[in-house]
Every structure is written in structure tokens, then in C-alpha cells.
Design a protein around this nucleic acid. Sequence first.
DNA 1: GAGCTAATTAACTATCTAGTGAGTTATGTC
DNA 2: GACATAACTCACTAGATAGTTAATTAGCTC
Lengths: 225, 225
Amino acid sequence: MTRSETTGATSEKETVKRTRNPEKTRENILRVAMTEFADKGLTGARIDEIAAKTATTKRMLYYYFGDKEGLYRAVLQRAYEEIRYEESQLDVDHLEPTEAIRALAELTFDHHEAHPDFIRLVAIENTNRGVNLVQAEGLPETQAPAIRTLEQILRRGQEAGLFRTDTTALDIHMLISSYCVFRVANRYTFRALFDWDLTGAENRPHLRTMIGDVVLAYLQQPGKV
Amino acid sequence: MTRSETTGATSEKETVKRTRNPEKTRENILRVAMTEFADKGLTGARIDEIAAKTATTKRMLYYYFGDKEGLYRAVLQRAYEEIRYEESQLDVDHLEPTEAIRALAELTFDHHEAHPDFIRLVAIENTNRGVNLVQAEGLPETQAPAIRTLEQILRRGQEAGLFRTDTTALDIHMLISSYCVFRVANRYTFRALFDWDLTGAENRPHLRTMIGDVVLAYLQQPGKV
DNA sequence: GAGCTAATTAACTATCTAGTGAGTTATGTC
DNA sequence: GACATAACTCACTAGATAGTTAATTAGCTC
């Protein structure tokens, strides 16, 4: 989130009585749409309802985003941008490989829990077979840093003889992601089937520790390292 | 106001052999609806389109299932019933705990890959917050056998001093499920972000072995067992 | 073979929904 | 202050969509 409009001091350039404010209007639409799409899905969300929840009119959604799918695509792109920004805050270079892996796993765990709407959008886009995400510009590059961080940790651990060498950063990323995404995304059906709340406060500490244990146990599996 | 007026000349030969078969009709609707809902979601699927793909008329969907959600609920229930049946085929009692865990993991892996429509329905129902699944009758009981099988394996392994004791069958089930579900459900966004096909034939053997390794490494983690 | 009812068919509708046509106003530029 | 245009408003529509009304028929029971 790059909010440069955190104007603490008074800016003389800023006309306060602006009735027009394209950036704000666009942003307002995008935020409302993100909530609605995350809540109801692409086909479930209603343009009229999104419009009603904004400070502007339906016509403006079309003015800025073309059509419903264009708006949805903008929402997706924005959602991934925000997530990337938050993830880039991670700094594990100063940690030992073992500690770094655990920190990364727990950060992912916390992160997904803190952004259920993002998880929902991802699930929605997957039921949509990713057709709108592939149209987003430069997404692979935004994800590269996360993978490179993990690659470095792995290399350090492998060179120190701590980690197995027959695995990759993508493997580990997928392992961590699957666990953390599933816990949030599938909690409803899991609860219906097993009467167990994956996101319940009482289960959180155990589940949070467990993913670190799992990844480290795999990386340090006897006979493999 | 008889409709026969509009048809004009009608020959008595036109007696279309209307064979009645309620079970077949119901089943036909259910199967078509399952495919459509898995494909487009609850809000994305269209009653008219489902009806068009059946051998009967739209009115019959309402006759048998009440409304769109009723049909969707019937589809969900059926999907879980079918899955349960397939999973009950599993027999690992004769295997050593270690081998049994690996067999279970790989069976789940294969199973999810073979039923992508089921995975889609689960994802769809989760974006729907599980409101329709909780209304299904006796679902927890259908899942109990799978958990009990896992519990037995764990107990045997723990009593033999092979497995750690600070974990439960639900933990392990969640770990295996998350990995296997994620691989199928999230392959589209994963591919868009990392240009890596989780369901590609070239990655399959490695990913299939990996989940068994992961679970066993965790269960046998040094210092814990 | 009359009568009953479950199963089935065809035509219809109220409402919703994404999208538009066409005009209006604020704002920066000269 | 005139002008150009980006930003915005309001009313409208064509088509889609879930659901219904009502008539018809197959097949069973007696």
C-alpha cells in the first residue's frame, strides 16, 4: 500500500473544497469492490451493490474500470500488490537457517490469518481457473523476492550441512503455503466434517508451531542430510 | 386454451412414448448439476443451462430439488458420499505404521488428483462459508472412519516408539489434506505466480513422494520420539 | 377399466443485472 | 474570462434469470 497522501502537515497546494477527486474516487471503488468480491465472488458480487456502497455512482465504475471483469481484475492486482508489500518487510538474513525457516513459516502463518479476504480472493480466482490473474502485469516478478529469500536460507542451511539437498525453494514454499492457506480457506468444510475449528484461538499456538516443526523435520530428515 | 390448438394437425402416431423413470431423472439432473456447479460455482451456474444439458426440463429440477440452493445442497451431499465410499476402500491394517502413513498420504494424493471436481466443490463451498454443507445430514459420521484409521496407525506407531506422541490424527489429516488439496485447488494461481505446474506430469513423482517424507519426518522427528 | 396420483411438459413472468446514452459541471490552461 | 476536457450525474434498457402456473399423461391400485 503506497499511501503518499498521509499529509501530516498542511499542503498549500491542496484545495480542500475539491468536489472532484479522481484518485480518491477510484480508490474508493476499488476498496469497496475488493470487499464485495472477496465476500461474494466474481459471479456473486453485484455491480449495483458495489456502487451503492461507494460514495459515487455506478456509472463511475464503468468509467474507470470498463466492465465488471475489469474491476475484478483491478481488485486482484491490487490485492497481490498489497500482500507483496507486506511480505517484503521480512528480514531473516541475520538468522541462522533453522531459525530463519521457522520465522518464515510463522510469518506466513500469521500473515494469512491476518488477511482472510486475500485468501478468499485467491480461492475465488482459482475456481475461476486463474484466467484473470494471468492477465495481471508483472506478477511473477513481484513474487520473486519471496522465493529468493527462501533460496538463500536453503543454500545457507545446505552448505552448513543442516538441510537435505534434494529439495527446492518452491517445494518448501508450496509446503508452507498449502498448510497456511488450507487452514484459513478450508476451515468451514473442515469444521463441518470434523467439528474442529482450525482458526480457533485454542488451536492456534499448536498449529503455528507445528508448521515450523514439519518443515524443519523434513529439511533435517535423518539419512537425507 | 388448450395447447393442442397451436400444434395444428396432430397425428395419433405422435404419441411419444413418455417412459417415466423418476430415479433416472433425478440422477440425471444431479450429475449434470454436479458438473455445472463444480465448473461455475453456485452463483456462476445457470439453472437454464443445467436444465438444457439434462434429458428433462427445467421444471423437473424444481420438482425434485425445490430451488437452486436445494439442488446445490443435494450435489454437495452426493459428492461427499461418493468420496467417502472410495476412501473406505483403504486397507492399511496389515502395513507397518511407517508404511501405512506413506500409503495413506499417497492414496490421498492420488485421490485428490483423480477428483478435481470434488476439490472444486469443496473450494466453492468454502467461499460460501460452508453454509450449505452444515445442513447436510450425518456428515461427521461419514468422515469418522478415515480419522479412526489414522488414529490406529498413529497409536501403533507411538506404542512401537516410532512416532512422536504430541500430535493427533486430526493434525496429521490436516497436514496431508492441506498439501494434497492445495496442489490441485491452487494450481492456477501458483502457476501464474511461479510459472510452475503443480499438477504437471514431470513434477508429480517428486511431489507424491515428498508428502510421505514430510509426514514421516515430522512423526519421527529426532528428540520428539 | 375407472380413478387416482406421481411424473412430466410447455408456456409464462416478475425481477434482477450488467451495461449505456446523453447531458452537466468542475477545473486547469491560455 | 473563454475554452477544452476530465470527472461526474441521472435516467434508461435489453436481455438474462430464478422461479411459477397450469395443463397433461403414464402407470398403478382396486
